[in-house]
C-alpha cells in the first residue's frame, strides 16, 4: 500500500486534469494496480472537513504513514512573506504544507508552479517552488531539504506536467524504483531529452524550412518562438492525450518545463540577430551551428521547400 496526499496551492488544477488523461492506465485502474490509496485530493475527496482535519492530525503524529506528498501549484509567500494571499482557516497554507512535508517519505512537486514557482515569482504573491525558485536552489523547503526517504523534492516540471510523467513517477515510487534526477531535480527518465525530439517537424528543422507566419507548415524555432530545442521534456515522444503535441499542431513550444517559465520576452516570437536565434539549441557551438544551418538550407530538398507533405 502506498498512501498519497495531494495538495493544491497557487495553481490552476491543470496537472490534475492532465493526470486524468493518463495513457498508461486510467487513474482508477492505475491506483488499484499500484496499491495506491489516495488519502486526499481536493477535487475528488468527499470526506467531511472534520474527518479531513483528523486525517491531517494523524499524518502529523505519524499514526497515518504518508508515503507521497504531492503539491500542485506554487507556494504563495506574499504579501511580505506572510503567506496571507493563500490561507486555510485564516492561516497561511504554506505552514500546513511545511508540516506535512516533514512527515512524508517522498515529496513531489507536480507542475512548474510547484517545482520552480512558475506564475507570480516576480509579483506580489511572491510565489516560489518547493526547493527551487526559478534557477536558484532556494525554494520554500530550503536547499538541504530531504524527505524521510532521503530524496530531495522530485520536480515534475511542465505546465501542466505530462500525464504519463505523473503516472510514471507514481509507478516508480510505488514499485520502489529510485529515479535519477537532473540538476533541477527533474527525473532524467523524462527530462533527459529535448521537447524537439520526436516532433513531426524535425525534417523542416533539419533543412531550415522556417515558418514565419502561422499555419505555414515549417519549423517554428527560427521565428515563431518554439522552445523545443531549448528545454527538456517528453511531449513529442509520449504525446499528449495519446494524440499530438503543440508543435505538431503548429503551436510553438513555450518552454514550460524550464525553471524560468513563463519567460519574460513575448511568446510566439524568436529573439534573433539577422535571422539566427539568440538562443540556440541546448549545447550547440554557435559558429558551427551557423555554418551547418547555412549549408542545410542550401541542401533542402524541393519536396520540403514546397511543403507537399502537409504534416
Amino acid at each position: 500500500m502506498t498512501t498519497v496526499y495531494w495538495m493544491q496551492s497557487g495553481g490552476c488544477g491543470g496537472d490534475t486534469y492532465s493526470l486524468l488523461s493518463s495513457n498508461i492506465l486510467d487513474i482508477n485502474d492505475m491506483f488499484k494496480n499500484l496499491g495506491i490509496v489516495l488519502l486526499w485530493h481536493p477535487s475528488f475527496s468527499n470526506i467531511s472537513p472534520t474527518e479531513h482535519l483528523n486525517m491531517i492530525d494523524n499524518i502529523l503524529n505519524r499514526t497515518l504513514p504518508l508515503d507521497i506528498l504531492i503539491l500542485e501549484g506554487a507556494i504563495i509567500r506574499g504579501p511580505a512573506g506572510t503567506g496571507m494571499f493563500d490561507t486555510k482557516n485564516g492561516r497561511p497554507k504554506k505552514d500546513l504544507f511545511h508540516s506535512l512535508a516533514m512527515n512524508a517519505r517522498y515529496v513531489v512537486a507536480v507542475g512548474t508552479c510547484a517545482a520552480f514557482g512558475g506564475f507570480g515569482v516576480d509579483h506580489s504573491i511572491e510565489a516560489t517552488g518547493l526547493q527551487f525558485c526559478k534557477r536558484k536552489r532556494e525554494g520554500f523547503l530550503g536547499e538541504n531539504f530531504t524527505s524521510l526517504s532521503g530524496m530531495p523534492v522530485i520536480n515534475l516540471a511542465g505546465c501542466p506536467c505530462h500525464h504519463d510523467v505523473i503516472s510514471g513517477t507514481l509507478m516508480a515510487i510505488a514499485s520502489g524504483v529510485n529515479l535519477e534526477l537532473d540538476e533541477y531535480q527533474r527525473p532524467i527518465e523524462w527530462y533527459g531529452t529535448m521537447v524537439h525530439q520526436g516532433c513531426t517537424r524535425n525534417e523542416y528543422h533539419e533543412y531550415r524550412i522556417e515558418e514565419s507566419d502561422f499555419g505555414e507548415m515549417g519549423c517554428l524555432f527560427f521565428h515563431m518562438g518554439c522552445a523545443g530545442p531549448l528545454v527538456p521534456g517528453p511531449c513529442n515522444k509520449l504525446l499528449w492525450n495519446g494524440q499530438s503535441s503543440k508543435p505538431r499542431a503548429g503551436v510553438p513550444c513555450f518552454g514550460c518545463t524550464d525553471p524560468e517559465f513563463p519567460r519574460a520576452t513575448p511568446f510566439f516570437y524568436t529573439p534573433n540577430i539577422e535571422g539566427i536565434p539568440l538562443q540556440l539549441p541546448r549545447g550547440v557551438n554557435r559558429a558551427h551551428y551557423m555554418v551547418y544551418k547555412g549549408m542545410a538550407a542550401e541542401a533542402a530538398p524541393e519536396r520540403l521547400k514546397k511543403r507537399t507533405s502537409k504534416v
Binding site: P160, F214, C235, N241, K246
Partner: peptide, 24 residues
C-alpha cells in the same frame, strides 16, 4: 478531450487559437 488534442496539440493548456484563425 482527445478531440482537443487533435485540433490544438494538447489539453489542458494549448494556445492554438491565434489572431486570424488557428495554427493548423
Amino acid at each position: 478531450v482527445e478531440v482537443i488534442a487533435i485540433i490544438g496539440g494538447q489539453w489542458p493548456h494549448t494556445s492554438f487559437m491565434v489572431p486570424g484563425g488557428v495554427t493548423s
